[in-house]
């Protein structure tokens, strides 16, 4: 806007030396100036460095503050090992479950028309919009000793909340949308024509799903599963409500970080936090490696 009044004065005198400093190649209208580009890149990198890289580095620096011995000593503590095992167990149960649920929900929403479809779409998003504390409390209200199903569970000696099943339920609830949300837009965009072709060629519904639908979405599915896994291992709020915080029994890694921090064991807290961060980094690297290894072959269906 500011250079608009300057232009009429500049144009009648193109021979003036000042005009020579303009780029030799005329700039395409779709192209930004070098300055804008550099500013944008610097802003993005600066922001990432400040808000992602710096805190991440701080975690590792803090964890190694008193040397590698202290860092490793944290992981020889049986309570820490139990927390790591529980976190992996919860992720190992909830991620495959959500993979199946997510594919089923996305398939239903993207490929079929039925009554209540918009309601289902909204329900899929529900865990995103509800506070994790509420997600946890829902299960206490349902399965707690004074909850709706509490007396029945107690009569049958079944323990849901303050035990592993409650933690798994809360994690499944919170991480449900990740897979479905990744798949729905892609499957809607792809439409149903390929499936229709397969069906008219005589393939069964299941075979169509396995050989047409699934290969078309596998990168989105992988991405959703990785996000789902990262959140399943990192979830704090909902799990905190249903956990009971019993060390060695119902304590997951994020909860263990809080406990160690509150016990003034800062090296321990950051050591466990660094492991959590490390697991997240491993999932990202795994995704990149898979993309790099099979990316050229499977590139057609790749959106991420």
């Amino acid at each position: 806007m500011s250079d608009a009044p300057a232009r009429p004065r500049a144009e009648p005198q193109p021979a003036r030396p000042r005009a020579v400093t303009r780029p030799a190649r005329p700039r395409a209208v779709t192209e930004e100036t070098t300055l804008t580009r550099r500013l944008l890149i610097a802003t993005a990198i600066g922001f990432l460095a400040l808000f992602v890289m710096l805190p991440l580095a701080a975690v590792f620096v803090e964890a190694l503050r008193r040397g590698l011995d202290h860092y490793l000593a944290t992981f020889s503590d049986p309570d820490t090992q139990a927390a790591i095992r529980l976190t992996l167990l919860v992720a190992a149960i909830s991620v495959p479950l959500n993979m199946v649920f997510g594919v089923a929900a996305a398939w239903a929403i993207a490929k079929f028309e039925f009554v209540g479809k918009s309601l289902l779409t909204t329900l899929v998003d529900l865990p995103f919009s509800v506070s994790p504390v509420v997600s946890g409390l829902v299960f206490v209200l349902l399965f707690g000793a004074h909850g709706l199903l509490g007396p029945w569970l107690e009569a049958h000696d079944l323990q849901i909340v303050f035990a592993v099943p409650g933690i798994v339920l809360a994690t499944v609830f919170v991480t449900f949308p990740f897979v479905a949300r990744e798949l729905i837009p892609l499957m809607q965009e792809q439409g149903t024509s390929e499936e229709e072709a397969a069906l008219t060629l005589g393939a069964s519904g299941f075979r169509t799903f396995l050989t047409v639908t699934l290969p078309n979405v596998k990168w989105a599915l992988l991405y959703g599963v990785l996000l789902c896994n990262a959140r399943a291992m990192g979830e704090f709020g909902a799990v905190s409500v249903v956990s009971g915080h019993v060390r060695g029994l119902t304590n997951t890694m994020p909860l263990h970080v809080e406990i160690l921090y509150n016990e003034y064991d800062f090296v321990g807290a950051f050591a466990v936090a660094s492991l959590l961060a490390g697991l997240a980094l491993v999932t990202l690297v795994a995704k990149s490696v898979l993309e790099w290894r099979f990316g050229d072959a499977l590139g057609q269906s790749r959106l991420h």
Binding site: V140, F143, G144, H146, F162, H245, V246, G248, L249
Partner: peptide, 20 residues
């Protein structure tokens, strides 16, 4: 012996709600 620590009122609430 497994221990759980937290605000006393909150811990009591958890036991009432079924923490064994």
């Amino acid at each position: 012996i497994r221990t759980s620590h937290g605000g006393s009122g909150r811990q009591a609430r958890a036991v009432i709600d079924g923490l064994d």
